[in-house]
Amino acid sequence: MKEKKRHLIQALAALAQNAHLTGFFTGQIYQGDGKHVCVPGLNCYSCPGAVGACPIGSLQAVIGGRTRNVSYYVAGTILLFGVLFGRLICGFLCPFGFVQDLLHKIPSPKPKVPRRLDRPLRWGKYAALAAVLILPAVLTDPFGIGDPVFCKYVCPAGTLEGGIPLLAHSAALRAAAGFLFSWKLLLLVAVLTASVLVYRPFCKYLCPLGGAYGLLNRFSVCRMEVDRTACTRCGACTRACKMGVDVTGNINSAECIRCGLCARGCPTRAIHYTCGKAVLGRDAKRRET
């Protein structure tokens, strides 16, 4: 699949998840029934355009709520998305992933993160996932309500999609913004700047949703497959991969966002998308015969 086609799908997915366009002009968030349902990507439910609920925000809200410390509905939704699509969601449906993709297109030096730094940092997304699952349940106020710690102190998507548009419309919110907003704005600028230099730093190192989908990548129905009979082990796929996946070694690694760069880079067209028993892509016919 061509990059332009993938970007078109990303743009349409971002639009579909933020279809309440009038919200961007009025500063009012959508309050309809769609907010009962979690969207697949990291998309803040306080974004004026959001028509669904952010799975990470929802998970923390339920776990940190007064009535329960365990979430069935949101955890089940994340599991369902993950087992069907894995990190295909990161590559095609996540609005914040799309933002990072676009920023990385800005011409600039693209330094390679040294392996000794890159490898341990990749665990960050699992640490963030653990924090999302545990901290709202244990760090509670006297009323038994826990803070959505990741959203409150880290999530740059919330600042970009919710914080900036809402503060632009509301003098009251601007007056209330203090050190916390400055911190989150600083983090957002750092993530966006890093995205110009390094491919998807937030997805690689910090995203708890990417961590959850990554754990399910090897079990997902939609996945990537290497045709071993066509593969010459030239390594072009691994060199093409911007997520640092050893494509021929472990194509369904937790790091693979199914962007398809490896398939495009393969000179023998040995790499394919598969969905259950269906082989997708223009060479699917050859693959099936």
Partner: peptide
């Protein structure tokens, strides 16, 4: 989750501006 009303809890949070999420 649906049986225990969790979806309504999610919606309750999502239809109001989450001050923590936006950094306020």
């Amino acid at each position: 989750g649906l049986r225990t009303g969790e979806a309504a809890e999610v919606a309750q949070k999502a239809v109001n501006i989450c001050l923590e999420c936006i950094g306020v």
